[in-house]
């Protein structure tokens, strides 16, 4: 192999440092004894203990997870259907307009999505009483809406790459079309489904702006709680919380990447 030049080495080191030093310092300071976030006063896990006894944070975390799970799953189904229509159906009127429109939420500012959804929900409630008030349901709907676009894009590119003769071969061997979908299409695009779901899950967990617009009393997500706490001053228990989230996400990423790699023979 060619020896890496010093430039590449330095650039890589700097790049990774830029990405990971903030995260590492956050993790380190989550074990800080002192209440001051910037002064190291010895090792302690008391902030983790405090976190576990904080009903507000635990409640918000639970709500966030529920929302993320529900909206990722809904977005997966709807986004996949959208991608199937856009890729597999013969040309129909307005197809290119539709495929352009499905990616719009990717570039639309969150503020606009949040505001327009809020207006929609208020209008709907006034017209036929659903959704009654705002809360978990409206956040799930909102998150599904923009996550769906991500799923559609990811699945669409996988479907385009898929050799259509695979499906024809299954048909040819006697499988009916629905059977072909579950036996062939689904397993072949499964990696895209997994990454689409994980992407949606993290996007939903992460979202602050849209959720703030469409949530109501009793439905504060974790980012909303953290944000409101931080406005009163950064406290070390938030560092502890962030560390836990990082660990969970890291485990998720590792699992996802081992799932997606093609298995090798022993």
């Amino acid at each position: 192999m060619k020896k890496n030049s010093w430039f590449v080495t330095i650039a890589t080191t700097l790049g990774f440092a830029f990405l990971y030093i903030p995260i590492i310092s956050l993790i380190i300071f989550s074990f800080n004894k002192s209440k001051l976030v910037t002064v190291w006063a010895g090792f302690s896990t008391k902030w983790y203990a405090k976190l576990l006894n904080d009903p507000q944070i635990l409640g918000a975390a639970w709500i966030s997870l529920k929302i993320a799970f529900l909206s990722a799953s809904l977005a997966l189904i709807l986004g996949t259907l959208g991608a199937l229509v856009l890729v597999r159906f013969r040309r129909f009127h307005g197809k290119s307009l539709l495929s352009g429109m499905i990616t719009a939420p990717l570039v639309m500012p969150d503020v606009i999505i949040g505001l327009s959804l809020l207006l929609l929900f208020v209008g709907m409630e006034a017209m036929f009483g659903w959704p009654a008030g705002r809360g978990l349901t409206t956040i799930v709907i909102a998150h599904t809406t923009f996550c769906m676009a991500y799923v559609a894009v990811v699945v669409q590119s996988r479907l385009v790459d898929m050799d259509e003769s695979l499906e024809e071969a299954a048909l040819d061997l006697g499988a009916k079309p629905t059977r072909v979908f579950f036996d062939i299409t689904l397993p072949v695009i499964a990696p895209a489904l997994v990454s689409g779901w994980l992407l949606s899950f993290t996007l939903s967990l992460d979202d602050l702006v849209i959720a703030s617009f469409v949530s109501g009393p009793g439905a504060s997500t974790l980012p909303m709680v953290i944000f409101s706490k931080v406005r009163l001053g950064v406290s070390p228990d938030i560092n502890a919380l962030a560390t836990i989230i990082i660990v969970v996400v890291a485990i998720g990423v590792v699992i996802a990447s081992t799932q997606m790699k093609p298995k090798k023979v022993s």
Binding site: S165, A169, P177, V188
Partner: peptide
């Protein structure tokens, strides 16, 4: 007669083996 009900089988130019 739809493809799945025909008394024919086809070997594809690209083989079309199910990768999974």
């Amino acid at each position: 007669v739809p493809a799945y009900a025909r008394p024919t089988n086809m070997m594809f130019q690209s083989y079309a083996l199910f990768p999974h």
